[in-house]
Write a protein that binds this DNA or RNA. Structure first.
Lengths: 361, 361
DNA sequence: TCCTGGCACTCGGTACAATCGAGTGCCAGC
DNA sequence: GCTGGCACTCGATTGTACCGAGTGCCAGGA
């Protein structure tokens, strides 16, 4: 009964009209408006009866009798899945993207941060950028630096230019030389290895060194698994404009402040292979009135984080999908060019990426 | 005429009553309410005539005839300067602060970030934490790490545990050994020197090394001056609750997103030696309806950043002042204990800091 | 059978008046 | 110089009427 897959063609057209108009106006849409919409050639009366059916099937709802209809989450879902293809960015936006990726030249973090701003600017919603996981990242350098007599800092430089660190409590006082020796051993063991899989086989002659190395290794392990719980959130201020109830804004922002929640939301979406999550589809109560559009970022086919857009459920899906996809793709290329050691390093202004052409015209 | 300094005692009492009540209720305050307030022993009629005077002198205003009065920026200013002393934190809050500083144990950035959350939680406003400037920071380690054939990363570890980095474009391909040699020279030159004042005197034998060193030095200089344009903003979601117009929220958040603006605002306030800035007193139009409370953070008497609270002009100043002051002070101590090399490093759970006692009971 | 125009009905939004009440300014009197 | 009293203002609330967008239903026509 609720077989979703195919709504009768006319119903689909009506649903599309309702969603499109509601996205634009934020006002409940009445049968007359739908009748006037392009591609609909039946009277408003007919549309009314169809709308009753759509409502019964859960695609639409009425805020109150004698008002127009607004889409339900299910309605949006159908719209996104069946009625709309990715959409294309406008020329202005496309230019913004191009210019951005031509000009940006900086550390990883700053790049992600700015990408996040870009995405937010393109769509007028908040955006989220999830950095590549460190599990697979290759260490370029590992170093122990003494901070105090009993505190050392483990500094790891990854191939992508990221630097991670962690302070280590050395229960007892440790000599500079011991630290240095440990640092050398660590560097040798970790260099060019993925962060997750560093081991030190043989013991050195000095048990004090071994002790420090062991401590550092466990810290390294923690880094590998933990450190990627960061996201870059862009343009939260635009959320205030997208909603009208101040409490909604407050609740959504509060959720966005909890990086952990955002990270797991994004990961979850990615794992489920989705690109859009609407309203209650994710489990977060505070984000009930939000939708999230996600696009993966990949470097040479390997997953390397994601970009996301967070807006009201009545967001402009085609546009958001297009923006996320394009920015995700370009970001992947950019990461590849700038940071991947196998590539030609210094990024030139113009590079037509070698294609894996995807119906983008 | 507008001599501010002294309002007649009774006027001052009335002003105080109005401000206090308005801070609590956000409703215009009428003469009857004031008459009922503690410490006021005159009739509402008398108060009315005094209020007329206060309004004429610019301390109060009426949203419309036949409404109560609300304070102007000038009114708040007088309240803060003359009518209120710092205030004391409630026991619950004080406990939160203590527990926080006992438990927190992590890198600099995370500590600042969390401090920011703490401050926001204490006050229910947004908070801002300005990290210590790097100008004076002492380098613990300087390192060059090759990322690609023509790209190297300059990694600097500071005594406070901060790590800064900057990628360097080496116009031409550079050998690992050259990089290593340059790295060693840099480290020697920079170790234990303040970031701002690193120089390399003698040339090495190898011009290629010298070239790389020169590039790195200039990058180092940039780092010293630029890198501190960061702030940690906490609890922006609470702003949504503090204002009621959604556009205000949006404007304020947008301003908060521009780190640069926030940094210069804070620095400006610090330089002017103020601890409170109200409404139009700072020059930022978008923050017209905001007030900022700032407290310096100092480590052993040296300025080391600041903490700030950003809320509506009708914020609870005594509480905010107290919170900022206490957190700023504790943060300074904490930074000292954790990161200052001259101190006893490993921070134990209980340390009665040696005081510089300040009327805190 | 399905679509359509027509019709009665619903109900939120707006406009308007009446009322209420918190608050004011002014003034005569203590 | 303070106070109580009084007339007045004006936003907020309530009630009423009305408009109009929108609905559901139905009889008639392709």
């Amino acid at each position: 009964m609720t077989d979703t897959q195919d709504l009768d063609l006319r119903k689909a057209a009506i649903l599309e009209a309702v969603v499109s108009e509601y996205i634009g106006t934020a006002q409940p849409v009445g049968s007359h408006h739908v009748a006037r919409a392009a591609g609909i050639n039946v009277s408003s009366a007919t549309i009314r009866s169809e709308m009753v059916a759509l409502e019964r099937e859960g695609y639409l709802m009425q805020p109150h009798t004698s008002a127009g209809r607004i889409p339900t989450d299910k309605g949006y879902r159908f719209f996104v899945d069946q009625l709309t293809e990715p959409g294309v960015l406008g020329p202005v936006q496309r230019q913004k993207v191009s210019r951005f990726f031509e000009q940006v030249h900086c550390e990883m973090e700053e790049m992600l941060e700015r990408t996040s701003s870009l995405l937010s600017e393109l769509t007028s919603y908040a955006s989220v950028v999830l950095p590549p996981s460190h599990e697979a990242a290759v260490a370029r350098s590992v170093q122990l630096v003494g901070l105090g007599p009993r505190v050392a800092l483990l500094v790891v430089v990854l191939a992508d230019g990221t630097v991670e660190k962690r302070s280590i409590d050395l229960a007892e006082e440790v000599h500079e030389e011991v630290l240095a020796a440990a640092s050398v051993r660590l560097h040798a063991a970790a260099h060019s290895h993925p962060l997750g899989g560093v081991t030190v086989t043989a013991a050195s002659g000095d048990p004090r060194v071994d002790h420090v190395v062991a401590l550092a290794l466990s810290a390294l392990g923690e880094l590998a698994s933990e450190a990627h719980d960061r996201v870059f959130v862009g343009g939260p201020s635009r959320l205030a404009a997208a909603f009208d109830a101040v409490e909604t804004v407050s609740a959504v922002l509060a959720t966005l402040e909890q990086q952990l929640v955002v990270v797991s939301l994004l990961r979850d979406v990615l794992e489920r292979g989705l690109s859009v999550v609407i309203g209650a589809e994710h489990g977060y109560e505070s984000l009930l009135s939000c939708a999230v559009v996600v696009a993966p970022v990949s470097v040479e086919g390997q997953p390397a984080g994601a970009v996301g857009i967070l807006g009201p459920t009545r967001m402009n899906y085609p546009q958001a999908l297009a923006a996320a996809r394009v920015v995700g793709e370009r970001l992947g290329q950019r990461l590849h060019e700038s940071f991947d050691p196998t590539a030609g390093a210094a990024p030139a202004a113009e590079h037509r990426p070698r294609r894996r052409a995807r119906g983008r015209r």
